[in-house]
Design a protein around this nucleic acid. Structure first.
Length: 561
RNA sequence: GCCCGCGUAGCUCAGUGGAUAGAGCGUCUGCCUCCGGAGCAGAAGGUCGAAGGUUCGAUUCCUUUCGCGGGCACCA
């Protein structure tokens, strides 16, 4: 029996207690979501629910009395071994081994689809993240969003959403000109402007630009400056794409800010806002009255000199995303952009949308780095940067992604590079991957011994007898595996993929504990028993859940390490 | 000044109103003649920053306060 099924039974038990007059409640008093969770202390049982405490007061009973009424009904369910009432009114439910073990059969049958849900079925969601200036390499700060943003998209898809990963290219404005001027200066052997970019990559870019087009240096101004800017931009953007592809983060849409202006999207955005009546002119400038919707003050769209603000691009971009059919636009921004939250939500409201439904802004805190025990200050212009590519070169894609995803984004992250570089075995990703490889090895050995086919899709469900799995550690592991769909659902709902990482670490711990205590394969010339086979099913189910979880994080699940 | 986030074990951090607050690292004690020891079993280590409030119950929600980080534009 799965916790989802159990929740259904509990709801039915409530209904039957109501219709028999034992509980003085109406059907509306039944909580819409019955909470069935694993007790912290497994001595309490396999599953626990707090419904008696929720409904007790409404029914005019103390929670324990309400629990006793439900206890009588739940005890009769097939597969339920014991129902106990504890503490203030918890109902603790213990399943029979046979019932508990069914989840392993279910996992093998569903394979990669185990844990997927339909919570977000039919939703089109745009997930925008990184959105760096194409004026230099992606640094470690961007790397957190690259890993987390991609994982969020994966988790949303696991719940049935159609998601698009989108990168907004800030290819307009003075920083592009400074970037171009820096590359040009390097190519001509001139000093780089004071307010330009001073990284070591600038001379390298300059050399590439010139080798692609040697005639560029002889162009007349201002064509030469523009040519340098455009060529360097193209190279830098291609480099960012290459690095992100290597990082296992693949964007579906690369959206150019410049194209917003050339395609007429800005005008369409203004039309939309004007039609909703939130634009006005004052002191020669055109404004959006975002203060109608929780923003501190109104924002300028068109400056008195006629130039468009960056905010104008933002509004047009949002309207454009909605025009492209996305029900929800998620923005993943750094903490230095938190002031944008209210104004972006106000943009959605000004466009006639519901800010609680159509837009969501996730603020991620900064990544700090320690090296030699001291914080590394980042400065792209000074060239003092640690890039995404550097990090991957040092620790690998899996360790980099995993260590960035396993923390919630709303707390600042301190990465100790020395630890990550010098002592990678301490990284939890290896612990999880090791569990996966270890199981793969056990199953491989079993297949070589002829116990069972190598490929689980050829396993015969009739050979699996879950009632064999009576050890406490087997029960603990099975219960944890059964909890996986709920973990995926909450990770999707809360946009918190780190929950997946923490969960599979628990699974790995639980497996290692089981493995140390429960022999899976027969030793020497022992006969093969149903227990051996049942434990192999448990192994394979565990491997599948770890595999599925790692896939949601974009981390590989090796069969050998 | 105003806004956002954080404050949990020596360190780095989990914990979407529940039971005795958890993990890794570090420290200490055990476990490889047999399925992968990148592992397992155990010990020590906490006024959950502080004070009020809400309720059957608060690390979690609300208010105040202290500390740390980040942000305020007709810049991009």
């Amino acid at each position: 029996m799965t916790p989802q099924e159990l929740a259904g039974h509990i709801k039915a038990a409530l209904q039957s207690a109501i219709s028999s007059g034992q509980l003085a409640l109406s059907s509306e008093d039944i909580p819409t979501e019955i909470v069935v969770e694993r007790p912290k202390n497994l001595d309490h049982g396999d599953w626990a629910t707090n419904v008696a405490m929720q409904v007790g007061k409404k029914a005019g009973l103390n929670p324990r009395a309400a629990a006793e009424i439900l206890q009588v009904i739940l005890q009769e369910l097939p597969g339920v071994e014991a129902v106990e009432i504890a503490g203030p009114g918890f109902i603790n439910i213990r399943l029979s081994a046979a019932s508990q073990g069914e989840v392993a059969r279910d996992i093998i049958a569903k394979g990669k689809n185990f844990g997927r849900g339909v919570q977000l079925a039919g939703k089109k969601i745009n997930v925008e993240f990184i959105s760096a200036n194409p004026t230099g390499p992606l640094h470690l700060g961007h790397t957190r969003w690259a890993a987390v943003g991609d994982a969020i998209a994966r988790v949303l898809e696991a719940e049935g959403a159609e998601s698009a990963r989108e990168f907004y290219i800030n290819d307009l404005g003075v920083q592009m000109d400074k970037f171009g001027a820096s590359v040009k200066a390097a190519a001509l052997g001139e000093p780089i402007p004071e307010d330009g970019y001073h990284g070591a990559y600038i001379p390298e870019l300059a050399a590439q630009v010139v080798s692609q087009n040697p005639a560029i240096v002889d162009l007349a101004e201002p064509q030469r400056s523009e040519a340098f800017r455009d060529a360097a931009y193209a190279l830098q953007l291609a480099d960012q794409k290459r690095v992100l592809d290597n990082f296992n983060t693949h964007f579906d849409v690369w959206y150019s800010e410049k194209s917003l202006h050339t395609s007429g999207a800005v005008d369409r955005g203004f039309e939309k806002l004007k039609s909703q009546g939130h634009m006005f002119v004052e002191e020669g400038a055109t404004w959006l009255r975002t203060s109608d919707f929780d923003d501190d003050k109104d924002r300028v769209l068109i400056k008195a000199d006629g130039a468009l603000t960056y905010f104008a691009s933002d509004t047009a971009y949002y309207v454009d995303k909605r025009n492209r059919g996305y029900d929800l636009c998620i923005y993943l921004l750094g903490a230095d952009h938190h002031g944008y939250v209210n104004r972006l939500r106000a943009v959605a409201a000004c466009a006639g949308d519901n800010p609680d439904e159509n837009i969501q802004i996730l603020i991620g805190q900064m990544v700090k780095m320690l090296k030699n025990g001291e914080e590394v200050r980042l400065s792209k212009r000074a060239g003092n940067i640690i890039t995404l590519e550097d990090l991957v070169d040092e620790v690998g894609v899996d360790a980099a992604r995993y260590s960035l995803i396993r923390y919630p984004v709303d707390s600042p992250l301190v990465l100790d590079l020395d630890l990550l570089v010098s002592n990678t075995n301490d990284n939890p990703v290896y612990y999880v991957q090791y569990a996966h490889a270890r199981i793969a090895s056990v199953v491989r050995n079993a297949a070589e011994l002829g116990l069972i086919p190598a490929d689980t899709s050829n396993w015969d469900p009739a050979t699996f007898d879950p009632s064999q799995l009576t050890d406490d550690r087997e029960g603990a592991l099975l219960g944890l595996l059964a909890d996986y769909p709920r973990v995926v659902a909450s990770a999707a709902e809360l946009r918190e993929p780190h929950r997946i990482a923490r969960y599979i670490e628990e699974v790995a711990t639980s497996y290692h504990s089981f493995y140390a205590a429960c022999r899976v394969l027969p030793q020497g010339d022992e006969a093969v028993t149903e227990l051996n086979i049942a434990r192999l099913w448990l192994c394979a189910a565990t491997r599948q859940v770890i595999f599925n979880g790692l896939e949601l994080l974009g981390v590989s699940a090796p069969d050998r390490m």
